[in-house]
């Protein structure tokens, strides 16, 4: 019995070693807390716009993909240290991030960020604004006169407004709109702000081949209109398309 187990283990290990050529499985890192971009559904699986998009991109690039959850805070360090191969987590393309990792072309066009508050007269210039740590929105608020209150997860930023800790929350419009629409107390205030160069997939700077594979897949989805259809399906008719 022991021998059977041992030889089975050895067999499994050598099979593993034989399959070890680059990226036979592409591990897709996401946050799972930013509906409708990506979230954990009621069955405990990764779901959302990026889940559908990612699976389609992998199918087009003929890659086997696996989904991995990671905290937003450490999502870039864990990519560079090799825990997964891509970031597909509603991450806006910015120059600062581009110095550390590489991005594919964007799969969501530059979209507007919104303020959501409990009342119309919330002080957006000098009040307390909640935003998620390490986002372009947090970076934007830090530059204005308002006080920035950072949280680790998107949900906490909205909770901070509900319980009065912050005057308003500043985040992607696509994330905030469904929340504001369903909660009678919350409303969109101020003007939309255009930030970043759209949302793209993040990859290690050394993974040029993988980036090109995904770039080609995204381009083919842009060309045949499936990407626009997917954006409208998840973000609504008013969403910006290509």
């Amino acid at each position: 019995m022991k021998n059977i187990i041992l030889s089975a283990t050895l067999l499994a290990m050598s099979a593993g070693a034989a399959l070890a050529d680059a990226h036979s499985v592409v591990r897709m890192g996401t946050e799972g807390a930013y509906p409708p971009y990506n979230f954990i559904n009621d069955d405990g699986e990764v779901d959302g716009f990026e889940r559908v998009l990612g699976d389609e991109l992998c199918a087009r690039a003929e890659l086997t993909c696996e989904w991995v959850l990671n905290d937003w805070d450490s999502i870039i360090p864990n990519l560079t240290s090799g825990n997964y191969d891509t970031i597909i987590a509603g991450m806006s393309i910015t120059d600062e991030r581009d110095e550390v990792i590489d991005f594919t072309q964007n799969y969501i066009p530059p979209a507007s960020s919104l303020f959501v508050a409990l009342s119309e007269d919330a002080d957006l210039e000098g009040g307390v604004i909640a935003a998620q740590t390490n986002t372009i929105q947090a970076g934007y608020i830090a530059e204005t006169g308002a006080t920035l209150l950072e949280f680790a997860t998107p949900d906490e930023t909205v909770a901070a407004v509900r319980n009065g800790e912050a005057d308003a929350v500043f985040a992607d419009g696509d994330f905030l709109l469904p929340i504001a629409n369903e909660d009678a107390d919350l409303m969109v205030v101020g003007d939309p702000v255009q930030l970043g160069g759209g949302v793209g997939m993040g990859l290690r700077e050394t993974d040029t081949e993988l980036r090109e594979a995904f770039n080609a897949a995204i381009q083919s989805m842009k060309d045949d209109g499936t990407l626009n259809a997917l954006i409208i399906e998840w973000f609504g008719e008013e969403a910006a398309t290509f």
């Binding site: 593993g16 070693a17 399959l19 070890a20 050529d21 680059a22 990226h23 036979s24 499985v25 591990r27 086997t64 696996e66 991995v68 360090p77 560079t80 240290s81 090799g82 191969d85 550390v100 290690r204 700077e205 050394t206």
Partner: peptide
């Protein structure tokens, strides 16, 4: 070590990057 990246060959990845979750 290449900047922030720690890059070893694929055979040396622990666990293998194509191992099941």
């Amino acid at each position: 070590r290449q900047g922030a990246n720690f890059i070893v060959c694929d055979a040396a990845k622990i666990p293998q990057s194509n191992a099941p979750q």
